[in-house]
Design a protein around this nucleic acid. Structure first.
Lengths: 201, 201
DNA sequence: CCCTTTCTTGAGCAATCATTCAAGTATATA
DNA sequence: TATATACTTGAATGATTGCTCAAGAAAGGG
């Protein structure tokens, strides 16, 4: 009997994700959202409940996108190939509304102010790290990376490099692409060499 | 004839720097500042002019501290020694009010909203990169790093790794220290090996 | 002690914040 | 076509934002 909303909720979440990604949590007012989504306050709150609820949906949507882009690379290029190409993909100027990782931005901005949202972003980052570790293990099983490395350690370092790359990309497109290449090349060097037991102080 | 302020302006800037560092620009209200600095609105505006003006002072102060800590390491351990120790120093839990770089946080938060402040942070980051490059050149002159590397490229990559490390440190103290060690060790490997001309797509 | 100069106080400003809600509008079923 | 059910509208809420300014308090020089 009722009436259907005259908007595509899914598309609205995408647009909200892009806006939050670019402007951050505090930097995005409800007026901004109303304008970008074409929604009046009443409709907005009927659809999403609150600004924070929509932000969490945007985080989930963002993380989803990252995972599926990574999986697409795996299908086409295999585990190691995906790990090598992901850095370049993620700072591709033509792709997204921002370079820096939205999850990292959220943790940095909201750690002290909105624990719940920061925790959500953190969980998504941990999940990505787990995916990376699985890919490193796969590359090891394929003999492309020496068994002597710990996949979890490699994944942590890889994610850290990725986060740095994406911060750098927010500052300068040119030097970022070179760094992305270096990250990819460094993975090749893990094939033969064995890691030392760290003893440096 | 006049009266002297009953506060230490320098100390206030330090405290403001710590607060802005932890909470960000939007996350720090004037009420927060008044409380932390022990200043009423009138005194605050007499002393600093505006919230943004104080934020810029805080950025300068922050950058100053980074430079002088790096220089102290250089005096004690030389160029390469400083580059190796700086990552660990910068995420030392006992040192600072936050792990992530305040300059990077500022760029990420304010790039689209407060161009002037973001540009200021950006300039400080570029300055640090220049310092890193000089240290890499010094290490090359001392025969500790192969001449075939480009010091500017090494500096850019080093800074990017550092930024990633500090974002990671904001999430987990334990894995960050391990990454800091890896960054230090990777510098040693630059001694003998020659870089390939990058040709990977 | 007086006077000038500066600093401190805190009430108050307009603007903006996220959010609510009552009234009006459209639509699918009967 | 009537009715029930949602959705849309937009004015209004109280809280908070960064900031101003007039009035009062303190302290140096004479």
């Amino acid at each position: 009997m009722p009436r259907k909303p005259n908007y595509d909720r899914n598309a609205l979440i995408d647009r909200a994700r892009d806006l939050f990604w670019k402007q951050g949590w505090a930097g995005t007012s409800l007026k901004d959202l109303e304008r970008t989504l074409g929604l009046n306050p009443g409709s907005f709150y009927a659809a999403f409940g609150s600004k924070n609820a929509l932000f969490e949906l945007a985080l989930d949507r963002y993380a989803e996108g990252g995972v599926s882009r990574l999986n697409a690379l795996v299908e086409e290029f295999g585990a190691l190939g995906a790990l090598q190409r992901y850095p370049s993909l993620v700072i591709d100027p033509s792709s997204a509304s921002a370079k820096a990782c939205m999850l990292a931005k959220t943790v940095l901005e909201l750690k002290d102010q909105e624990e719940d949202l920061a925790a959500c972003a953190n969980a998504h980052l941990s999940n990505m790290e787990t995916l990376f570790a699985a890919l490193f293990r796969e590359a090891q099983a394929a003999g492309q990376i020496a068994q002597s490395y710990d996949a979890e350690t490699l994944a942590r370092r890889y994610q850290s490099d990725l986060l740095g790359l994406r911060v750098t990309a927010e500052r300068s497109d040119v030097s970022a692409e070179a760094i992305a290449q270096e990250i990819a090349e460094s993975l090749v060097r893990l094939a033969d060499k064995k890691p030392r037991q760290s003893a440096t102080g």
